[in-house]
Design a protein around this nucleic acid. Structure first.
Ligand code: MN
Ligand code: MN
Ligand code: MN
Ligand code: MN
Lengths: 226, 226
DNA sequence: TATAAAAGTTAGACTAGTCTAACAAATATA
DNA sequence: TATATTTGTTAGACTAGTCTAACTTTTATA
């Protein structure tokens, strides 16, 4: 794969991954803006502009003054490589080292920058070629392919529909710990008992337990499979 | 342990570990000089001087202009913490990911800087509390203790003495790959058949195989236990 | 002990990544 | 369309870590 250029700094890698994540987020248009990017990375817009120029120089993004930012194919493949490492490490921490799913992200943010092609491939093998990380997000393959799964937001279900949790949209500690408290994890079956039109909240049954009301915000943060 | 201060940069950590390694190397006097340190780290003396001032400011080393450098207790404990991570990661790569013993060091140089107390302790547990890394070097415990083992250089043995390999002194790829070629690894039994006074070389028997001659340089690079 | 060599320091410069403050362009809104 | 708001850029400054070149101190040696 001639795409993956290995002389990227820790920081450049973070920008590429951010751009990739933003391109997933803004589904239709995979473009991003300077401010959006800066906000995502926790830096000031001026800082993002500078880095953008550098990434453009290296042909990792296309962009012109006051215009939108788009990853080039090389930029995208590099971003995917980081995302792959991130999710493999999260899986390692979760599966092998007993980290909880709200703890893995922070450490994977560091581990994703370790440079060693052998390491990532061996890690994947050691984990038995997992397709999804602890949050249900797809783990890119070595060739850059990203597994897909059909999923909808819990909020999209109709009354009496049955489903299984497949991923979390919100990966914040607060949400993940709330899910743990509700004993919801990847694979948990949920039935929608009632939709409350007033505020968009739902009455749901978790793994056959007694009914429980969850907010619209909650229902829009959980991906399920019908 | 109030010793471990976590706000050390990647670079500061490398300086502390280098100082610790040098203090082991110069057994009697655990001091180091500026040039020695710079050479070890692959930077120029001027660079080392600057960093030294910073480490002194943080009370991680004691040192005065034109004087020798010594780690403070805090500096030492921080250095030990890095060394612990380095050796645990080397063990992980070797034991779990099938890295060879000449490949582990480079990647562990990166992994040793990952910040997460939970990670290192869980990793140690996952590896079953190993006492020695793939090169036979002791892995510091969480409390800073460093296991010891009595070992001598192969070159110190007399004719007809029997021993087992316990560690390598030289961890260069060239030496490690040579050992592999000779089918010598940690635990391999060796018998000294003859000492050649002319050049300090030895005739040895490796794991009961036929006799073989090894140089003085070789014999001074291998630690064994009688 | 005088001098040469080795060891160590200082001054000044550079890069990567960041910031603030001022400005410019694009977009939204009245 | 004129103006206000949002979005993005530039200029200039700062920090960490590095370098080279010139200088100083210490140590070794004749
Ligand atoms: Mn994550
Ligand atoms: Mn994840
Ligand atoms: Mn090593
Ligand atoms: Mn080692």
């Amino acid at each position: 794969m001639f795409y993956i250029c290995s002389m990227l700094s820790y920081t450049e890698e973070n920008y590429l991954k951010a751009l990739l994540k933003l391109s997933f987020q803004n589904e239709d248009k995979p473009e991003a803006g300077t401010n959006e990017m800066a906000a995502y990375l926790g830096v000031k817009p001026a800082t993002a502009t500078d880095m953008l120029k550098k990434l453009k120089e290296k042909e990792l993004v296309t962009y012109k003054k006051y215009g939108k930012i788009l990853l080039t194919e090389t930029g995208k493949q590099n971003g995917i490589a980081i995302l792959r490492k991130h999710r493999l490490w999260e899986t390692f921490l979760y599966e092998k080292l007993d980290f909880s799913w709200d703890e893995v992200h922070e450490v994977a943010e560091q581990l994703e920058h370790i440079q060693s092609a052998k390491l990532v491939d061996k890690l994947e093998e050691f984990l038995n070629f997992p397709e999804f990380d602890p949050h249900g997000d797809p783990i890119p393959k070595a060739n850059g392919e990203i597994p897909t799964i059909d999923k909808v937001l819990l909020s999209e279900l109709k009354e009496n529909e049955l489903c299984k949790v497949v991923a979390v949209k919100d990966t914040s500690t607060l949400f993940l710990q709330y899910l743990e408290k509700l004993r919801i994890t990847i694979g948990t079956p949920i039935k929608v008992l009632e939709r409350i039109d007033f505020d968009g909240s739902l009455s749901i049954q978790i793994a056959g337990e007694e009914a429980r009301n969850v907010s619209m915000k909650f229902a829009e943060s959980l991906f399920v499979k019908r």
